[in-house]
Amino acid sequence: MKKLRLVFMGTPSFAVPILNALLDSEDEVVAVVTQPDKPAGRGKKLTPPPVKVLALERGVPVLQPQKIKDEKFLTELRSLNPDVIVVAAYGKILPSEVLTIPRYVCINVHASLLPKFRGAAPINWAIIAGEKETGITIMQMDEGMDTGDILLMESLPISPEDTAGTLHDKLSALGAKLIVRALNLLKEGRLTPQKQPEEGVSYAPMLKKEDGLLDFSRPAKELANLIRGLDPWPTAYAYFRGKLVKFFAPSFEKKDAKASPGEILGLENGKLLVATGEGILKIGELQVEGKKRIKAEEFVRGYRPKPGENFTSYP
């Protein structure tokens, strides 16, 4: 089969290595579809999404429809005559009007081992749930939320030190490798759809800042997973002396402390020890509101927490 005409749909940094791989492949990316520019930063300056930045650097036409069902956009998309539409973290569920446009298929690069963690934040939720592995699923798209047939899948271990940020980068790189492999298999007639299993379905809804509020009555292991899963956004936090404090670089031990949940137990091997409902939470780095992120030793030196002083879930 001759080289494929591709339209790529994606928006955030996760999609950038995947688009890069397609641009470097033997196939042709004829256009990129991405979300509209949005205000960002303190000055609320209109900022293009990362995928648009790369597309413009590589000289690829960019489409940014406000509405995916806009007739002008659909007409423009049809006029491109794509063989395949490749989607990676575009940000919206595609309607049938888009799914039926390509000659062959709409393919999605999803950052979980489907049917686990369907939805917007699979990387975060895999860590929060304490999973030992995750991966990339290359999926044939339908009108459901990540319900289409599986075309290709590869797993990846989650290390105890992984955060959503580090796992994001690993999965993005894996997705870039797998999508090129999938398109080559398609051209060879060897890409075989398989129905997703009906058992084991779980969901990964979009995260909100409030999801990061720590409840120290929960087990230390769960809190450590939550902190890692919300790093770098929206971050896990609690309060100390009325100020919001963000937590990073956690670990835990199972032995219980004879202390109330949230109580600061002191410093050990560079980690701040905090009592929880079950086990001890160990924190390597903290960030007090309005200040820079610092090591636990610096926090103890600067704030000198008193014996019995607590982190709380309220200001």
Rank of each mutant, 00 (worst) to 15 (best):
L63R: 03
V7R: 04
I93F: 12
K132L: 14
K195V: 11
K258A: 11
G148C: 05
P315Y: 14
A173C: 03
S112H: 05
P61M: 03
Q66K: 14
L77W: 04
P205V: 00
A15T: 11
S202F: 01
V201T: 13
L223C: 09
T34L: 06
G266M: 08
M153P: 00
P232E: 06
L77R: 02
E297D: 06
Q64V: 10
L265T: 11
E298C: 04
V16N: 09
F248V: 04
F117D: 04
K132R: 14
E188G: 11
L22F: 08
F8V: 03
P36S: 14
I68A: 08
R5H: 13
V30W: 00
Y104C: 04
R241S: 09
V60P: 00
A220Y: 13
T192R: 09
W125Y: 15
K209V: 06
R241N: 02
L74T: 04
K44C: 06
A164L: 03
L230P: 08
E298S: 07
L226S: 12
V180E: 10
N269L: 12
E289F: 03
P50L: 04
K295R: 15
L151F: 05
H168D: 12
E210Y: 01
V201N: 01
D149W: 00
G175L: 08
I179L: 07
M139L: 13
L4Q: 10
K67I: 10
V32H: 08
E133K: 15
D211R: 02
Y90K: 05
K208V: 07
E28M: 07
I294W: 11
V109Q: 11
G43T: 09
A275D: 07
K195R: 15
G41R: 14
T147V: 12
E57Y: 02
Q287T: 06
L267W: 09
S202G: 06
R304I: 02
T276S: 14
K177C: 01
N81G: 09
L114D: 08
G212H: 04
E131A: 14
G284C: 05
K306C: 00
P82N: 11
L22V: 05
L178D: 06
D37K: 02
W233A: 14
E198A: 09
E57G: 02
M206I: 12
N108P: 05
L273G: 06
G135P: 14
A89W: 03
S96T: 10
P49I: 06
E76G: 02
K132A: 11
T312R: 14
A21V: 08
E278M: 05
P49Q: 08
G165Q: 13
